[in-house]
């Protein structure tokens, strides 16, 4: 009996072609984005979202059109940080428009779509939902990347949830790994978690833009940022105290906007 690869007729479902078309849609949509930067850390609660939102605002204030894609689908916090209004998203036949927050930062987030306080829940068979839930979340991320029309952007920041899963999905969807900015707090525990994330990013081929050390100057002891920076040969591009002044972000924004532009995959 012949096996799968022996059958060469195009199957009408063309699932592989459908996946290819999805990737193509993402590539075309993001063609006008100068720089795609994933903000991550292997650790929760270190201030990824806080840094992402403030960095985005500083970039926008410097005259560089900036967007934030809240890739934390289950714990979205960006709209609150950017004070985005709860107005409906405008949907057209082939795209939706992002919302606009403080300093003109454009934004898409699951928080804009969900009922107040409701978790992200999907319709579907509840038994064995673990089988399809991950695929559903990756598809939601792919739709945010492929269907939101940002217009011309200097930088698109992606606020990732803790852990590495979303980063891996992002690499698959984009085809080329995004540049990565890591956020840590000074402690050794944070250093160890962020190290794992940075190693995964390097293994996947991401360029490291540098390390931001958050929550410095308080009770937290350690020198995570310096240690990570020297281990990975990447700069510490900012040290952020608790409740920093607005100009603390300008220096970080300046460094990020000097980073090489994203080489978009030839389509």
């Amino acid at each position: 009996m012949r096996t799968y690869h022996d059958l060469t007729d195009p199957d009408r479902s063309g699932l592989a072609q459908q996946i290819g078309a999805q990737r193509q849609r993402v590539a075309e949509r993001l063609a006008g984005v100068g720089r795609i930067v994933a903000v991550m850390s292997g650790k929760g609660g270190v201030g990824k979202s806080y840094v992402t939102a403030h960095l985005a605002r500083a970039l926008a204030r410097a005259g560089k059109p900036t967007g934030v894609l809240d890739a934390d689908l289950n714990g979205p916090t960006i709209p609150r940080l950017l004070e985005v209004s709860r107005a409906p998203l405008t949907a057209h036949s082939a795209h939706v428009e992002p919302m606009v927050g403080l300093d003109g930062v454009r934004c898409i987030s699951m928080a804009l779509l969900l009922e107040d306080g409701a978790p992200l829940a999907f319709r579907g068979p509840s038994a064995e939902s673990f089988v399809w839930r991950g695929a559903m979340e990756a598809t939601a991320l792919r739709e945010f990347l492929g269907d939101v029309e940002w217009g011309t952007l200097d930088t698109l920041l992606l606020d990732l949830p803790p852990g590495m899963q979303r980063y891996v999905e992002l690499c698959d969807i984009l085809g080329t790994p995004p540049a990565v900015l890591t956020v840590t707090i000074p402690t050794p525990e944070s250093r160890d978690a962020v190290r794992r994330a940075m190693r995964a990013a390097v293994d996947r081929g991401s360029a490291l833009l540098g390390v931001v050390e958050n929550m410095v100057g308080g009770e937290l002891r350690g020198s995570a940022a310096d240690e990570l920076a020297s281990e990975f040969g990447t700069p510490v591009i900012g040290r952020v105290p608790f409740h920093p002044s607005a100009n603390a972000w300008d220096q970080i924004a300046d460094q990020v906007s000097r980073a090489p532009r994203t080489a978009h995959r030839a389509s």
Binding site: S13, Q18, Q22, A91, L113, W132, E143
Partner: peptide, 28 residues
Amino acid sequence: SLGVEIGGRTVPEQPLQTIRSAVATGRE
């Protein structure tokens, strides 16, 4: 959940189609 259709796509994919058809906790 992969955003694909057995038998092939017959009308173009709508923006955020899977999100809009599958999210149960979406705002009115």
